[in-house]
């Protein structure tokens, strides 16, 4: 399997504070990978480093074989990386429909209206809310909107920053089910950051475990889940 995304010994810092130290990880084409770890381990920073959002990085980041580290965020996402950011990044004063159209802003083809309809098949609640101001949506609806917005850009790789954050368990199950369907049907690769380790382990084929900015373990989820020290230290089981 070739890697769609590859980080090779990446350091990242916010000004004087170094957050990532030599992170090396890969997301295979069509694969689903989880990035686990405690609060402050550097999960969000890893996603931000990939998109060059407010962090300085050293080391090589490759997407589809091409070096992307140091490129401006706009150019990186245009290569085919969708980022569902921490906090969801909703355009609160704009309508749901405008939010979705913004997700497709980098596209020049004529299939945008059809894609709005197709993506609303995944998230039917968005169809009901189409003309509503996005700031009036509930947290769960905004999370769906954030994923839908990223999908509108037809990315090859989706970066998801804690899609379960603040949501009711039923809703989390639903969102994870949809992510699995999208991964299968559209062969979209995903890199998932999660606090909810158990759910993530069910979903993905590869896990990287971060601790204070370093990758301390990696492997298939069964192996990670079976490792006694890992379980006790990071998975809370």
């Amino acid at each position: 399997m070739t890697a769609l995304l590859a980080l090779d010994k990446v350091d990242a810092d916010y000004g004087p504070t170094t957050v990532l130290r030599g992170v090396t990880l890969e997301v295979p084409d069509g694969g689903m990978v989880a990035l686990l770890g405690a609060n402050g381990a550097g999960k969000t920073t890893t996603l931000r480093a990939i998109c060059h959002m407010g962090v300085k990085t050293r080391g090589a980041i490759r997407f589809a074989g091409k070096r992307i580290d140091g490129m401006p965020t706009e150019s990186i996402v245009r290569l085919g990386i969708g980022h569902v950011p921490e906090g969801r990044g909703t355009f609160l004063s704009l309508s749901v429909e405008e939010n979705l159209k913004l997700g497709a802003m980098m596209r020049r083809d004529r299939g945008i209206a059809a894609d709005v309809a197709r993506i609303c098949d995944y998230f039917p609640v968005l169809r009901e809310r189409m003309d509503q101001q996005a700031g009036t949506l509930s947290g769960g609806e905004q999370q769906m909107l954030a994923i839908a917005r990223a999908l509108m850009g037809k990315p090859r790789l989706l970066l998801l920053d804690e899609p379960s954050f603040g949501l009711a368990p039923v809703l989390v199950q639903e969102i994870f089910r949809i992510l699995r369907v999208i991964n299968k049907e559209e062969r979209m690769s995903m890199l998932l950051v999660e606090q909810n380790a158990r759910l993530a382990l069910d979903l993905v084929s590869q896990v990287f475990l971060l601790e204070t900015g370093r990758v301390v373990a990696s492997g298939p989820p069964q192996q990670i889940a079976a490792d006694e020290t890992v379980r006790r230290a990071y998975l809370g089981q």
């Binding site: 959002m53 965020t73 245009r78 990044g89 704009l94 802003m105 980098m106 850009g153």
Partner: peptide, 16 residues
Amino acid sequence: RAAAENPQSSRLAGIR
């Protein structure tokens, strides 16, 4: 309008 409201999300949508 998007760039004015939320520059960071706009960049993630590929808006310059």
